[in-house]
Nucleic acid binder design. Structure first.
Lengths: 140, 140, 140, 140
DNA sequence: GTGGTCTAGACCACC
DNA sequence: GTGGTCTAGACCACA
């Protein structure tokens, strides 16, 4: 069995998306799930404390508590009284499907925003490609 | 004046994602906006009637009313009491510079969202291309 | 940051005109807008809670919600989940020329409305002055 | 008793106010009442036919029918089968109060529009005075 | 038939 | 406690 403090990892960074319309506690949950899917978080990693995350995201601690509780109920994380909250020993089902759903949601909402602004899908694609090109150059 | 039924177009299909956590009325709004971006809906098209869409999506008519109203307030659609709801004719387009700035902001925020979710720029681009392809097929 | 209760202001009073034929939610919206013009409400002021205003006006809370939401969509107020609804800080003001054009349009349309109702410009001016006087008295 | 065709008067002109939020049939009613209050319409005057008014205002004949019916129910007008609709023999109660209510509504909505646009009551008053001055000069 | 307004009341998200 | 979403259903305005 792997010890929990075997290899300390850099803390996972949360980010809120104000324009998505998705409830805050839901975004926290989704990000933990997403991080599990990508491997950014693995079994044994410690999550930020409730208070710390509340400060970081400028939200109410109760909102964090709620998100953590829901994650714990679904078996993804484990709360160790007095020491913190940790990623559970595994078994994230359907990681791929969940990840795909999240990406799809981003894509659909982006297309919607473009439409509301009078932009076509093609214009959007072109702009995104241009952005990618910019990034590529900056790196070289 | 051009008649609205001059050239009947395939009706636009709405669909709901029950697990996304995004409010239903928001999903309806986003889909209309998205359809404007993809060209699935164009100026003059009639949207489903409030009652019809409510039946199709198995939701309350008031929820549809709310979505339509918000779309009207933002100038994207026009309602004509007693006859129906239509895509607006006169969505004034911004001038070039402002327009470009706006598109750029959408792109930047989308990249940020994707990054926060652990998706690469390439994954994002691929998903957007896939969405475009989907639209192309539906239209043919 | 300035505290919101630093200098308690007299609460803004809403009232309904049952015989006017104007929808209730519209009257609420117009009164908030009017209060902004008269200075009865200023940035940072808290509006009555949804439930309180519903009780005061003897209407359904949902009707208040609808009015507040429309005001928020137009950028005049800001809602903070769990704490209340406030007059927005950042109502960006238009530049001089555009601003003047806008005011002129309001004036022209008002004169036209008054004329259609058989009111002279002098009657209109007198009524507006009376409204201003009323505001002045309420404030003292 | 005054004969109805004794002295033919110029037809009364109706106008619709699209921005007021007041139902169309209600505006028709209000304008007849207002015209009675100002003397623009007097007992015996003929109103436009249902069809004519519907065409003039670009509204549905049923809407006119409804307005006329309501006016008839309140005893202000009389329908003469085959010859037209006429102002009744009088007794408009409370003409002054009704007229005042109408003017007040215009004033309140104008102040509201100004507030929504970020204008103060004083700015509005100044603009209206300027408009009056302009009119005065044009006439001299 | 269409959309518009309002009520009553449930349940959720957040402070 | 705050606001947010959704439902069910009544009644009105309009074509």
């Amino acid at each position: 069995m792997k010890s929990r403090s075997e290899k300390p990892r850099p803390p996972f960074r949360f980010r809120l998306d104000a324009v998505s319309g998705v409830p805050v506690y839901r975004q926290v949950i989704d990000q933990v799930r997403g991080a599990l899917a990508t491997g950014a978080l693995i079994a044994g990693d410690q999550l930020p404390t409730v208070r710390q995350l509340a400060v970081d995201l400028a939200i109410n601690p109760n909102t964090v508590v709620r998100a953590y509780r829901e994650l714990e109920l679904s078996g993804l994380i484990e709360t160790q009284q007095g020491s913190g909250t940790f990623i559970g020993e595994g078994r994230l089902r359907n990681a791929g499907a969940e990840r795909e759903r999240q990406l799809n949601q981003i894509v659909e909402e982006t297309i919607a925003r473009a439409g509301a602004g009078g932009f076509s899908l093609d214009e959007l694609l072109a702009a995104l490609r241009a952005a990618k090109e910019r990034v590529r150059k900056e790196r070289s």
